[in-house]
Computed example of a mutant assay.
Amino acid sequence: MGEWKTVYEDEVEERWVTLKVYESKDDEEDDDDDGLVVRVTVAPIDDEPEQKGDEPKPIAKPDAEDNSITLDPDAVEDLEEELIEIGFSPEAVRWIVSKVPD
């Protein structure tokens, strides 16, 4: 068994991006490179807080699941295409993909 490890989490083009890689306990013993397994979750950020009383409404946190999109590409190479499909610029796509460990 393994676990998902967050390798990058930040705002990119007004959306919260969380990049995770799957680390398997068998990876250390397995010399076959089946490719890295990645998962990207993209959530909108509420950039206009509503005023209620004295406290502004907090900005959406990465765990806001209402409008989030999760990408599970078959290969890291497919991640670029999937990020472009959901509206990221080529520069943002290169930035996000650069965070995937080698």
Rank of each mutant, 00 (worst) to 15 (best):
10 D>K: 11
14 E>N: 11
16 W>Q: 09
63 D>P: 08
77 E>Q: 15
21 V>F: 03
23 E>R: 11
35 G>L: 01
10 D>W: 05
72 D>W: 05
5 K>S: 06
63 D>M: 07
77 E>M: 14
75 A>G: 04
64 A>Y: 14
11 E>K: 12
26 D>T: 14
23 E>H: 12
54 D>N: 15
84 I>F: 10
11 E>N: 06
73 P>E: 01
17 V>K: 04
31 D>A: 10
64 A>P: 07
70 T>D: 09
28 E>T: 13
68 S>A: 15
100 V>T: 03
73 P>D: 04
15 R>M: 06
79 L>R: 01
85 E>S: 15
102 D>C: 04
29 E>D: 13
27 D>G: 01
69 I>G: 00
62 P>A: 03
65 E>P: 02
39 R>P: 02
33 D>P: 03
43 A>M: 05
54 D>C: 09
63 D>I: 04
49 P>C: 06
93 V>S: 05
13 E>F: 05
70 T>V: 13
55 E>W: 12
57 K>W: 13
101 P>H: 04
51 Q>W: 10
35 G>R: 01
101 P>N: 00
72 D>C: 12
68 S>Q: 13
87 G>C: 07
24 S>F: 01
39 R>W: 02
98 S>D: 12
12 V>S: 01
102 D>K: 14
88 F>R: 02
18 T>Q: 02
94 R>A: 12
35 G>K: 02
102 D>I: 01
60 A>T: 14
16 W>L: 11
84 I>M: 14
78 D>P: 07
24 S>Q: 03
36 L>Q: 12
64 A>G: 09
102 D>G: 13
101 P>E: 05
35 G>P: 00
1 M>D: 10
8 Y>W: 08
99 K>W: 03
67 N>C: 13
26 D>R: 15
60 A>E: 08
19 L>E: 00
46 D>V: 02
11 E>Q: 07
23 E>S: 04
68 S>Y: 00
1 M>Q: 13
17 V>P: 00
91 E>Y: 05
68 S>I: 06
19 L>F: 01
74 D>Y: 11
52 K>T: 11
61 K>N: 09
14 E>C: 04
73 P>S: 06
5 K>D: 03
24 S>W: 05
77 E>Y: 12
26 D>L: 15
82 E>P: 05
51 Q>I: 11
54 D>S: 14
5 K>C: 01
62 P>L: 07
44 P>F: 00
37 V>K: 14
